[in-house]
Nucleic acid binder design. Structure first.
Length: 321
DNA sequence: TAGGTCAAGTTGGTCC
DNA sequence: GGACCAACTTGACCTA
């Protein structure tokens, strides 16, 4: 409907130009606006290629216009004008591109100047800039997406590396804890034997090579800061994000807080308590080890005797006073 | 011939 | 209310 009016307008413009009437598209637009068309909607096939590199208009581009499409018999002549949608020449596009690089918005003066230089209608220049801005925006979005994707992948890699490191440290802490228990257990046993048989020379039963080996190990008393780091390594596992397979959180990249900010809601207080517990457990023979009730520790390591009996039993057994 | 590209049309919004 | 713009659509043209 509106399209027909526009087609009629464009062909009328061609007719006017062919007839030697210097009527600009914008002026024609105003003309049409003031009559039946509420708004002038551009010009079709109004390219004068003589403006750039001496190009001459190729009339074969114009297609035959359908009379029925317009229904305006007064414009019969112009409807016989062949009209086709055409592309701008390479030179015109190059010129426009250069101008677009300078400034992607068009001031009215610049628009008319460009139109004059290129032998195009100002409306065509405006449309080209509009479309060019749209293309530029699409490209920019693609670029932004690629950059964000790369950034996300980097962060993901870093996170996976940190996870592995954390697991390693956790294992190390458990190993050291285990060794301490074995060592202290050995000491207590020998102390008891000494009490019962004071005259006998100290002879500890040696059940396995590992225990002997552990006794040969130097006694290392962890410094407070080491305890803290060990503590954090253990207690990080309190967070659901870091246990149960951990990597599941990576499946939700949109919420970065899930990945990089473990839930401290139940840790702030627990941290203090557990740090205290761990400190005492490592420095004190009562072995109040952290978070026995935690899921993480429900399945004890095969080689760990620490998990085979409760802490209370140890106290009863070894410090029966 | 299907799908991509591009000039131009349509619509709805903002600004002066 | 007109000019302008962004977003979307249409249709001609090109090409693998």
């Amino acid at each position: 409907m509106a399209r027909r009016r526009v087609c009629g307008a464009s062909n009328m413009t061609v007719m006017l130009q062919n007839g030697g009437i210097g009527c600009s598209a914008d002026a024609l637009g105003s003309l049409l606006s003031s009559s039946s068309t509420p708004r002038y909607r551009g010009v079709r096939s109004m390219v004068n290629f003589e403006g750039v590199n001496g190009n001459t208009p190729d009339r074969s581009f114009y297609r035959a216009f359908d009379n029925e499409e317009t229904g305006d018999e007064d414009l019969d002549e112009c409807f016989h004008q062949p009209e086709k949608k055409r592309r701008l020449t390479a030179a015109q596009v190059k010129f426009l591109e250069r101008n677009f690089e300078v400034e992607n918005k068009l001031e009215p003066e610049r628009k008319t100047q460009l139109a004059r230089d290129l032998g195009l209608q100002p409306r065509q220049v405006a449309i080209w800039f509009q479309n060019r801005r749209a293309r530029w925006k699409t490209k920019q979005l693609e670029k932004d997406f690629d950059a964000l994707e790369a950034s996300y992948n980097n962060l993901k890699n870093d996170y996976e590396i940190l996870l592995k490191e954390k697991e390693k440290l956790k294992e190390e802490v458990l190993l050291l804890t285990d060794k301490l228990i074995h060592r202290d257990k050995g000491q207590e046993t020998s102390a008891t034997s000494e009490l019962n048989e004071p005259n006998l020379p100290l002879q500890k039963p040696v059940n396995d090579a590992a225990q002997v080996k552990e006794h040969d190990l130097p006694i290392i008393v962890p410094k407070q800061e080491d305890l803290s780091s060990a503590n954090s390594a253990i207690f990080d596992s309190d967070s659901p994000h870091y246990t149960d397979g951990g990597h599941s959180s990576l499946l939700e990249p949109a919420n970065s807080s899930n990945i990089f900010e473990p839930d401290h809601s139940d840790l702030s207080h627990a941290d203090e308590d557990e740090e205290d517990h761990l400190s005492r457990s490592l420095l004190h023979p009562t072995y109040h080890f952290p978070k026995l009730e935690d899921d993480v520790y429900r399945d004890p390591p095969v080689n760990s005797c620490f998990y085979s009996f409760p802490v209370e039993d140890q106290v009863c057994c070894y410090w029966p006073y």
